[in-house]
Design a protein around this nucleic acid. Sequence first.
DNA 1: ATTATCTATAGATCTATAGATAATGC
DNA 2: ATTATCTATAGATCTATAGATAATGC
Lengths: 225, 225
Amino acid sequence: MKNHKSQATKDVPSQVKNQDLIYRRRMQIIDAAVKLFIDKGFHKTTTREIAREAGISTGLLYEYVASKDDVLYLVCEAIHAEVEHRVAHALKKATGGRDVLAGMIREYFLVCDRMSDHILLVYQETRTLPPRWRKRVLENELKLTGVFVKALQELADTGDLPPLDKQEIELIAHNITVLGHMWTFRRWFLGRHFKIEDYIKVQTDFILGKSTGGYIRADSAKEES
Amino acid sequence: MKNHKSQATKDVPSQVKNQDLIYRRRMQIIDAAVKLFIDKGFHKTTTREIAREAGISTGLLYEYVASKDDVLYLVCEAIHAEVEHRVAHALKKATGGRDVLAGMIREYFLVCDRMSDHILLVYQETRTLPPRWRKRVLENELKLTGVFVKALQELADTGDLPPLDKQEIELIAHNITVLGHMWTFRRWFLGRHFKIEDYIKVQTDFILGKSTGGYIRADSAKEES
DNA sequence: ATTATCTATAGATCTATAGATAATGC
DNA sequence: ATTATCTATAGATCTATAGATAATGC
């Protein structure tokens, strides 16, 4: 995983002076920790193991972080940076097509598919973080949702979507975000019946409504008796 | 929290013979553990604390469970039993109205609202469980989704909903389940803009489509240029 | 001289159990 | 006599650091 520079670099203090070294060593630490955390979870991973996997001594680990929690925070930030980077990158492809929103959903869901272990990790361990950092991680979640809010707003403004009020837009954006996550934490089951492309298709229909005929809509069903 | 008898009673062995005593003591243990786990999380709670909170000695705790993991499993099972019980109970109210599905969603979301700490707990700690029990907990998740699958199937069969294939029904049921959960783990944010009743209303519109005019539907927006 | 790194371990827990005691029922 | 309960602690970790060593740059 590429370690995109993030807020975390400033937040987490290090004993080491050389900035470039901090960056590189933390990259090693993050990569090692991500692997172990995904495999065994945060609590069952020891700082010794992280150091060994990163190829450094336990002592040195503590020159680059002040606590095991720091490692988790670095990991969460790195994952978010990666997701954000990939989503931003993918969304460039999406713009321009007939259905901008469908394209965005598609690219985002593909990112969720590829990063599912990572997304799941953040979900499960966020609570472990000290409050100060938990907030940061949650803010990151919002930032991603914000991308969809903005897109929906624009589409509603230009008339590409029916008029939607702020609340509706907000919620639909959250829904899209979370339905992407759903693929990560229900994959153990959904994977039996869906490939990611099926999932994208049916979910897009669900979110946008089938283009031919309404989706589950009261007025498209039989009249009430 | 009422401790509805569940699978767990048989799964988790006890040194104590008296069945009724097992039931009562485990109820104490579960109640204590739920409280502590919600407050501090599973890993930061010690067996000593659980015992103290339950009003028994640490030694006695280990007469009723074989490990700390056992406690977590008992807790997860109890929460599921409670959710299931409440949903089943709530759904009785829902049936009969004009829009059965909307009623079901409403009752289910209300349960999510009231049990949000508990649902969140299960989400976050399931991964900690040994595989054998993790599976059980995940099966429980499916059981709940199954309730919606069944309801959707019936409504599609009777023509109260437009025809939907198995895959679509399956996915919509999952969506409903997860959008209920979404209220539990994004509440910290959603709560700023929505009361539970707002949330129910907008989500129901989203899932069922607005009854007046389509929801976000390609064919209800302006024609493609 | 300063910065980075390693080795070795202090100190703090925490789970789970062994063995002693109290309560119960024949 | 059997079952339930408690007290006290063995044994196993694990985090974080102190102090020693190696590398770097003036």
